[in-house]
Write a protein that binds this DNA or RNA. Structure first.
Length: 414
DNA sequence: TCTGGGGTCCTAGGACCC
DNA sequence: TCTGGGGTCCTAGGACCC
């Protein structure tokens, strides 16, 4: 049996834990540059605020004091997430942390009453220990557990889908877009065929499904028929790519300014790489003008590196090189980023025949020292000169709440 | 005027191999 | 006039997820 534990309005709930003034108020969490709403409290959803809605469309609500806003505070959310996940290990050892705000648990229990009381216990424990409200969906497959949690969300409670009759009546009222794995595109195509809800979808012909919508959608249908296609993935395989990108606070025209931003992205990406004890051999830099009004320019430069590495200076120099190849003078740029992929595991550099081991060890120790210092003090305690000092591209995100749980300077005061 | 960031997987088509 | 069958790997683009 699968249990899906899903935090309600996670980012908004994290903010509410530390700020009583936000309780029972419509609240949205903003994207970087305070550009649009990326999370909403229950009350904000009721107000009609849409996911991804740009901030300027919400101005009236905000200025009248109806809608409260916060800049996003990912250090806080990541730490709160960890607390929730840690708590979940009380209830099962087979846990798949699926995203920052949800996890699947696997348990050997078929009895409905017992499942329900377990669900209650999970919900109350997490709420007591972390302050985060959750919904719980329980069912024989992951996709059905997702469907159950969708129902549970509506009352912020617990929902179990077990026998066929219950499943069928629940799926009848489940719109296609809300099935896990069916997006806007597939839903549109299905509607053209006269399929309007999850029950009708589940009863479609396998061959037809496979041929028209692909193997993934066939699996979704099977899962809705209680055939488990997706097992719990307890030890997720090491990640396959790292991306670091941002929209700029203001449009940039000078190569030097963009170089600084790209150096910063590379530094962050390389930190992640070392944190997960990986080395990379593929680096891409991309650059884009705004998307909404002007003629868009997008270009990227892909580079295969001579050897696997996680040495920041080397990556920065390659990235700057790539950037100068795709930079066109005279344009106003709005966004840039870097992508690393093609990883191997291992925390020390692979021997390069042109380089002596002593030099490599020195590089290793330098990176280790930087990481340790930045971990101990602040992410920005030590940084590379090429990242620049003023960070013209960066926005202030003035409405960010303090990093209550991850920074000594910003601890919660009682 | 103002619109996020970070991921994974599948598919189709081409190049190439035997 | 008629021209096989099976396989891998790579890439770009699309679709989906949070």
């Amino acid at each position: 049996m699968f249990i899906l534990v899903d935090c309600n309005n996670f980012y908004a709930s994290c903010e509410k834990v530390f700020d009583l003034r936000l309780h029972n108020k419509p609240l949205v969490i903003l994207s970087s540059n305070d550009g649009c709403a990326i999370a909403r409290s229950k009350e904000a959803k009721q107000l009609g605020v849409k996911m991804g809605q740009p901030l300027f469309e919400l101005r009236n609500l905000i200025e009248s004091g109806t809608l409260l806003t916060k800049s996003s505070n990912f250090s806080l959310y990541a730490d709160m997430s960890q607390r929730v996940m840690q708590t979940l290990f009380q209830f099962s050892e087979q846990i798949e942390i699926y995203s920052i705000d949800e996890a699947f648990l696997s348990i050997d229990e078929e009895n409905k009453e017992k499942l329900f009381s377990l669900g209650c216990k999970i919900k109350t424990t997490i709420e007591q220990w972390t302050g985060i409200p959750v919904s719980v969906g329980i069912a024989p497959t992951k996709t059905l557990a997702k469907a159950a949690s969708f129902l549970a969300k509506q009352q912020e409670g617990i929902s179990i889908l077990l026998d066929d009759q219950m499943i069928d009546s629940a799926l009848k009222s489940l719109p296609l877009e809300n099935i896990w794995g069916i997006g806007r595109r597939a839903a549109k195509r299905l509607k053209k065929e006269g399929i309007f809800n999850a029950k009708a979808f589940k009863e479609m012909d396998d061959i037809h499904l496979r041929n028209t919508l692909g193997v993934n959608l066939l699996k979704v249908a099977l899962e809705l028929r209680k055939v488990a296609c997706y097992p719990i993935q307890e030890n997720p395989s090491c990640r396959k790519s790292i991306v670091c990108s941002r929209s700029f606070a203001e449009k940039l025209t000078a190569l030097e300014d963009i170089q600084e931003a790209v150096s910063f992205f590379v530094t962050r990406a390389a930190e992640k790489l070392r944190e997960e004890k990986l080395q990379t051999r593929f680096l891409a830099v991309f650059l884009a003008t705004g998307t909404f009004y002007e003629n868009q320019y997008f270009n990227q430069c892909k580079m295969v590196l001579p050897n696997y590495t996680s040495y920041t200076p080397e990556l920065i120099s390659k990235a700057k090189n790539g950037l100068s190849q795709i930079f066109k003078p005279g344009l106003s740029y709005k966004k840039a980023g870097v992508l690393l992929t093609d990883f191997i595991e291992g925390s020390s550099y692979q021997t390069d025949i042109f380089e002596n081991t002593q030099k490599e060890q020195k590089k290793n120790r330098a990176m280790q020292a930087i990481d340790q210092i930045n971990q101990h003090y602040d992410k920005t305690a030590l940084y590379f000169a090429s990242e620049g000092v003023h960070k013209k591209w960066k926005s202030a995100s003035a409405q960010r709440s303090p990093r209550y749980t991850t920074s000594w300077e910003e601890l919660f005061t009682v």
